[in-house]
Design a protein around this nucleic acid. Structure first.
Lengths: 241, 241
DNA sequence: CGAGGCCTTGACCCAGCTCAAATAAGGTGG
DNA sequence: CCACCTTATTTGAGCTGGGTCAAGGCCTCG
């Protein structure tokens, strides 16, 4: 691909992401010069806690898991990211590393940008700073919500909540959704063992009107699922956060 | 107190906080004009999820708990804040509310600032933006670490980790620390019931060389506590994050 | 057709929860 | 300084959600 085509494609990708949507074309062009748009297969490790932290990543499609690993080898999946999510920090000492790792779990398109490019833009562009602050602040809120979930919800409720995230645009109180990645990963993402996930899903099937065939789930009565799930949460169904 | 004295005191308070430490005097003076320094007793509710979110708070001393409450009435304590911590967002729609509440649990000195003052400063002051981004990013990392803890650590290990945070400046591998607030709150902060906390602390006492008398804890051998606790964590003792 | 990965199921266990009661610790008025 | 009340904290007893270990089942791919 020729250089200017590459740049055009980078501008296209960047402009699709909420975080950059409001930027002026000249800024996008500037970023595009340094952006690297790439495709990553399932299993690709983007970085680990040992990797020097030089690039900021944007997820354009696919799914990327963010995890932490203890000395003893246990893994905690913090989140699984898709379109619009980001990885890494913009500020912070040069050769610093992150305390987590990131691995592609479903084939993804990603964009990487050198951190300093973004930091420079923060200095000169107040609107961009505000957008970033809002983004980071919503990431933190997401984590807060997650801590709440893992503290007060039962396993079946956590699964219910996970399913509801894919019902945001549903009509007529019903939906058919497709689990976007392995049940094992969903289990760990929700802070439980795969075996527990399997049993909790069976339990959820009995309690609410859902049917599960492989990775596809049919929800007959969204409201019933909401009643069962959201009673143990601080916010009600189309909760977004 | 006269107006200019009040302002001087606000400047003093602000300049002590890491987040503002690197700001130019003129910026501090500007903030001080709008800042409200106040004292709050134990039990003061700063805001709940129903309160319109107009002010940004800074904790100068004391302890403030941040919690989320479910429809069913269960409470999850997300964090307990002390000096240097902040509450609220800088950006985000005007009359929006937050999804959590904040209550003073040990008499505190606080500073409040109208959100718009900070947002304005972000627009014009790149250095301030960077400082805020770093702050937010570390808040998010803190939450990530918390999710990890609650996922992979046992109750006694979580208590060990909590104790170690007060041993950062210890010498000679020993320390005597004073628990800064009620055991019930510590328990909930660590995601467990008060009864479990009590038993887990007893267990920790057997496993590592610590002694507990009321709210004061004597740690004979910090290394032993580190060995017991940090094996189930992604980072080792003076972990800071 | 066989090997390996994912998912489910069974059997059993245990950390942490619940409910209830006993004790300690702090604060108040007399 | 004491009796009394209120709020923490500990302890006991029993339960259970979710973890662990092991065995199949099922599906995909070479």
């Amino acid at each position: 691909m020729l250089a200017h085509q590459k740049k055009e494609s980078a501008i296209f990708y960047l402009s699709q992401l909420p975080l950059f949507a409001s930027l002026k074309p000249t800024v996008l062009e500037h970023f595009a010069k340094y952006a690297d748009v790439f495709f990553a297969d399932k299993g690709t490790v983007l970085f680990t806690p040992d990797t020097p932290h030089e690039k900021f990543y944007l997820v354009f499609s696919g799914w990327v898991k963010v995890y932490r690993e203890t000395m003893a080898g246990d893994e905690a999946i913090i989140d699984v990211l898709n379109k619009g999510c980001t990885l890494g920090d913009i500020v912070g000492g040069g050769a610093r590393t992150l305390s987590y790792g990131a691995e592609v779990i479903e084939a993804a398109e990603l964009i990487s940008l050198p951190r300093f490019i973004l930091a420079e833009e923060v200095i000169r562009n107040g609107a961009f700073s505000l957008a970033l602050l809002q983004h980071l602040s919503s990431e933190r809120d997401l984590r807060d919500h997650e801590i709440e979930h893992r503290t007060v919800q039962t396993a079946p409720q956590r699964i219910g909540c996970f399913l509801l995230k894919f019902c945001l645009h549903a009509k007529d109180n019903r939906a058919v959704i497709h689990l976007p990645f392995d049940k094992t990963v969903i289990a760990r993402r929700l802070g439980m063992q795969p075996e527990t996930f399997s049993r909790a899903l069976a339990r959820l099937r009995e309690e609410t009107a859902i049917r599960v065939i492989g990775l596809s789930v049919e929800i007959e009565d969204i409201q019933k699922l909401v009643d069962y799930t959201c009673s143990a949460c601080s916010s009600l169904f189309p909760c977004q956060e």
